[in-house]
Design a protein around this nucleic acid. Structure first.
Lengths: 184, 184
DNA sequence: CGCAACTAGTTCATGGATATACTAAAAGCG
DNA sequence: CGCTTTTAGTATATCCATGAACTAGTTGCG
């Protein structure tokens, strides 16, 4: 914003970072752009960024050091808790594409963490499950992650945590009011 | 209740999907695994998945049809509101690596949406800004996205939206209590 | 001043995720 | 039954993002 008719640019503070940018965005959108629904922007920007901050932290402090990607963790986690599962179900539960699951599975199988077994009833299907090694790995990883999750969540009181879950739940489950795009 | 050798499902409902998996995970972790901090897991799982659902929806309904990636949108958005910015600052504000900004910039410049200008004071730096075309594009895209953001957020009442923002804000800004991993 | 340490950005190799197209199996329907 | 349609999974090409190595400019300090 250099030469325009617009009002004097809101100051861009030096301390600005990934998180505090939200505030700047909010201010500029309302004062200069005349955003119609700025609260909505704020809600979703905040949601997205909070998720990124936490995810990046967990991935880089827990999973990468063990040579696992965030996706690999998710696939193992899902298989651990819901398995054995069809590949297609795993895709749905992890939020990945079927192709991604297929590729990832290859890696995990060759690493001895997962097993791929043909479904007896349906010749097209494949049942995914964890090997013994995979099971003990994910158990340990989860334990470690859970400690860090606890450190994160503890910033909020327990009632606050419950309210947060409730609100996010409401945000997502009431989405039937319009047609949401999902994978597949 | 169940055997610890073979993890026989508590009951894995057929209706299970990306979102309702959270509930299953929560149940199994508490009944079978004896999770120490299951509320923490629930909070972060919910946060992560809510963000994914919304992000995927916005990306696939707004940005992909225009040939823009989610990252490209973020970079343009940041440059629009905070620009002109150094490449390094853009990385910080978008949450991408410096390499990613560098690569993306190349694409956006060749598409006539961004400009790259050498910094006069510092020979190493590059100032990023939007072209006229870029500015009008992002304005239009934002307007469109904002409509959809509004549809999403409207599921919550205004006070609920404000509480949600407050809680997420608290979750992130009080993180100084332990050392969080961030990019760079 | 001159050299070491640091910083900004880019390039490159790599890994991960996607869409697309393909194969094979199952289901539906005349 | 057979033929069409649908479904599950995989291979391929492509895109995107990252870390690491590199270049070039800046800062700091003896």
């Amino acid at each position: 914003m250099t030469d325009d008719v617009a009002p004097v640019p809101v100051e861009v503070p030096e301390s600005l970072d990934f998180w505090s940018f939200i505030e700047l965005a909010n201010r500029r959108l309302s004062t200069e752009y005349g955003s119609t629904h700025e609260l909505a922007t704020q809600v979703l920007l905040t949601l997205n960024r909070a998720s990124n901050v936490v995810t990046y932290d967990l991935e880089s402090s827990i999973h990468r050091p063990r040579g696992l990607s965030w996706s690999a963790f998710r696939l193992m986690f899902v298989t651990w808790l819901a398995g054995p599962v069809e590949s297609k179900t795993a895709a749905k539960l992890t939020g990945m594409s079927r192709a991604a699951v297929s590729n990832l599975t290859k890696t995990l199988v060759s690493g001895g963490l997962m097993e791929r077994a043909p479904d007896e009833r349906d010749g097209r299907s494949v049942q995914l499950s964890l090997t013994e090694k995979g099971r003990s790995e994910i158990g340990e990883i989860y334990r470690e992650q859970n400690e860090r999750e606890h450190a994160w969540a503890s910033v909020l009181t327990e009632p606050e945590q419950r309210i947060l879950v409730m609100l996010l739940d409401k945000l997502i489950t009431n989405r039937s009011q319009f047609d949401v795009r999902g994978r597949n």
